[in-house]
């Protein structure tokens, strides 16, 4: 609209009408392409979370946000990287063929949601045990239950391939999850770019 009215005022000579019309047409088509690219890059109703921490409390918070967002009708993406990756290991799975460092990381890092510890007041594991029993008493869902819920609610999980490789984890030792993808940073950024909310936890 703006273009049209502005251009109309700027047409003083009859002979230049055709030229001006062409100019306007060009501008309109230019605006149209701009509008199209704008609508393509505008954020979707989506949340992208980076789960960097391997602590029970932070993992729980990220899963609560993820399931809450799914309940609110948002598309949810969780990107597990670095200390967050061992949370997704399956306790029951055993894989061989690891080198020395891989074995060491394998034993020292938690094997799945059950072995994840509190970031504060762990007190050699006592704090975590107390927190877990308190969570049960207060009906707060465990990490395991939250992961199940996330799967039910179509929360998508991405696992950082580089972190896995660094710590010597193999794909075969990760949990069975319906929407699990192994990827790198670009995949996450593609999702984050058109998300309304991005969080680093």
């Amino acid at each position: 609209m703006k273009v049209n009215t502005a251009k109309k005022e700027e047409v003083p000579y009859k002979g230049e009408h055709l030229v001006k019309l062409e100019e306007i047409e060009n501008q309109v088509s230019e605006l149209r392409t701009q509008l199209e690219s704008l609508s393509k890059s505008s954020p979707e109703n989506k949340i992208s979370l980076i789960v960097f921490s391997g602590d029970l409390d932070k993992a729980l918070a990220s899963l609560i946000i993820a399931t809450g967002a799914a309940a609110m009708g948002m598309d949810v993406v969780m990107f597990f990287t670095f200390w967050g990756t061992p949370i997704l290991r399956d306790k029951g799975k055993k894989v061989g063929g690891k080198d020395f460092m891989g074995k060491m990381f394998g034993t020292m890092l938690p094997k799945g949601v059950c072995e994840v510890k509190l970031s504060k007041m762990n007190m050699a594991g006592m704090g975590t045990v107390m927190m877990k029993s308190l969570m049960k008493k207060k009906n707060v869902a465990s990490l395991e239950q939250m992961l199940e819920l996330a799967a039910e609610m179509d929360v998508r999980i991405y696992i950082c391939e580089m972190s896995m490789d660094l710590m010597g984890f193999k794909r075969e030792e990760m949990i069975e999850y319906p929407n699990l993808t192994f990827c790198g940073v670009a995949k996450f950024l593609e999702e984050a770019q058109n998300s309304k909310v991005q969080l680093f936890i």
Binding site: T67, G68, A70, G73, K138, M153
Partner: peptide, 14 residues
């Protein structure tokens, strides 16, 4: 009743 966050909205949304 007795369900803490985020279960009430998760259940209701379902």
């Amino acid at each position: 009743k007795g369900m803490p966050c985020p279960m009430p909205i998760v259940k209701v949304s379902k």
